[in-house]
Amino acid sequence: MDEKRFEVVYKQTVSFSTEVRILRDKVTGVHYLINWTGQGGGITPLLNAEGKPVVSFD
Score class of each variant (00 low, 15 high):
V30R: 00
S56K: 08
D2M: 07
R24M: 11
T28Y: 04
T13K: 15
R5F: 06
V55Q: 01
T37V: 07
V30S: 01
V27C: 01
S15T: 09
I34N: 05
T28H: 05
T37I: 03
I43S: 14
G38Q: 10
L46C: 08
V30K: 07
K52I: 03
D58L: 05
M1L: 08
E3T: 05
G40Y: 06
L23Y: 01
G40K: 04
M1H: 02
N35P: 00
L33G: 00
V27Y: 09
F6T: 07
K26N: 15
L23D: 10
D25Q: 07
G29Y: 12
T28M: 07
S17Y: 14
D2V: 06
K4A: 15
Y10P: 00
V8F: 05
V55P: 00
S17V: 11
V8Q: 05
S17G: 11
Y32F: 04
R21I: 15
H31Y: 01
K11T: 15
G29V: 09
G40N: 13
P53L: 02
L47M: 08
V14R: 11
F16M: 12
G42S: 12
I22E: 08
Y32A: 02
T18F: 06
L33E: 04
M1D: 10
N48Y: 11
R21E: 15
L46M: 14
L33T: 02
F16L: 13
F16G: 13
L46N: 00
F6P: 00
W36V: 10
N35G: 03
I22Y: 06
V9A: 13
G40Q: 10
V14S: 10
W36F: 15
Y32V: 01
V30I: 14
G38M: 08
S56V: 06
H31F: 01
E3D: 14
I34H: 04
Y10F: 11
V54Y: 04
Y32H: 02
T13N: 15
G29D: 14
